[in-house]
Amino acid sequence: MDLGAGQTEAGEFTLLLEFDMDMAGFTSNWSYCDRLSTYFARMISHNRSDSLLYSNLFSSALNELLETVYRLHAPTGSFVCSVSRNGAKDRIALTIPVDTETEGFYRDAVVVLNGGDVSPRYHNALFSDGPLQPNIGLLELAVDYAACFSIEPADGNAIRLIAELTLEASAP
């Protein structure tokens, strides 16, 4: 799962779209996950070679990330979601306010995601009995969308979770 991570410098990515919102606002309504991911997907898919297909895939991937954040975050602070692009690669960066527990969740998750093939874990999680595991969306991105994850510290009590995705073989 280290497809190209580190190959590209942050500087080569161009910011396409950024959105920030108070965490309390974001988590006041579940449908924001769907609406935001759909809005982002539409806005950034226009110049992909198949805009509709790209937008479908992007919306699915981003929605899983947003649902994860919706469930796991510190109660206050500001939530930032941005998408930047470098050729065929899109980088989603989420600035998430965290406390010790939620920070631990994201850090542990990224260690797992970067620690080799996670598809058995993902498939177990898909068919587990009982409630869904909170990291299922992250696992799905790693397996089905070949996303590369990393974490950076951010200002205040927050982390930046980064997922890089290549959803289309090559840019037009």
């Binding site: 699915s60 929605n63 869904l132």
Partner: peptide, 14 residues
């Protein structure tokens, strides 16, 4: 079916 999250998939799959 254009969109399906894991919550829904998990229920259907079960």
């Amino acid at each position: 079916l254009v969109r399906l999250n894991n919550v829904a998939f998990h229920s259907l799959a079960g």
